[in-house]
Amino acid sequence: MVDWGLTKVVAWGGYYARLFINTVDRPRGVVSREEAEDLRRELRRRLRVLKAPWGYVQNAVYEPGELYRSVRGDFPDLMVYFDSLRVRPVQTVGYGSPWLEGNDRGPDDSLHSFDGFYAATWGDKRKRDMHALDVARFLESVL
């Protein structure tokens, strides 16, 4: 289904997209650093705003080193967060349109946020804001 010799970039979906520049399976073999950097720059520019059937989608595009102190393993060349996580990239291929009506992997009723999410029913009900370490202490106590 995929012609790897013509594929410049591979994307892997989930709650955000991970983009990998195809440097091995291209006809000329490994692309030069300059070509990979030019492609990364062009992708950043083109992915920041996308036209969707319902309007424009504003996206955050990062290199992993911009988000993490260190990167290890097989990290992506770029990470894309679509419309503050309101639009989810798919994890499958073979659709006639880049925009799907629903989730390609089945129901997804969970909540997602850059700041994380927790629901709690313990402690002082008047306390509205909690720090992540408060949640961690609670989880440690029940696990």
Rank of each mutant, 00 (worst) to 15 (best):
D124T: 04
G14A: 05
T92C: 14
E140A: 04
S110K: 13
E66H: 02
E37L: 14
Y16I: 00
M79A: 02
Q58C: 09
E34A: 08
P107S: 07
A52Q: 06
L19F: 02
A119Q: 12
T7C: 13
G116T: 06
G14E: 07
S141P: 00
S110N: 09
L139K: 07
P98V: 00
T7S: 08
N22H: 06
E37G: 06
L143K: 05
E34I: 07
L133V: 06
D104R: 03
Q91W: 05
R88A: 11
L111Y: 03
V31T: 04
G94I: 06
N59G: 15
Q58K: 14
D77Q: 11
G5H: 02
Y68W: 13
K125W: 14
K127Q: 13
D109N: 11
L139S: 03
R86S: 15
D129E: 14
K51F: 00
W99H: 01
F82I: 01
I21G: 03
E34R: 03
G106R: 06
S113H: 02
V93L: 14
S84T: 09
S84M: 08
S110L: 05
R44Q: 10
L67R: 10
E101I: 14
Y56P: 02
Q58Y: 13
G29V: 04
A132L: 07
I21M: 01
L133K: 02
Y81S: 01
P89Q: 03
G5K: 12
V10K: 13
A119G: 13
R18N: 10
D38K: 13
Q58N: 02
G29S: 01
S84Q: 09
F75I: 06
P27R: 00
V135T: 12
K125L: 06
L6E: 08
N59C: 11
R137D: 10
L78R: 05
L47R: 06
M1I: 10
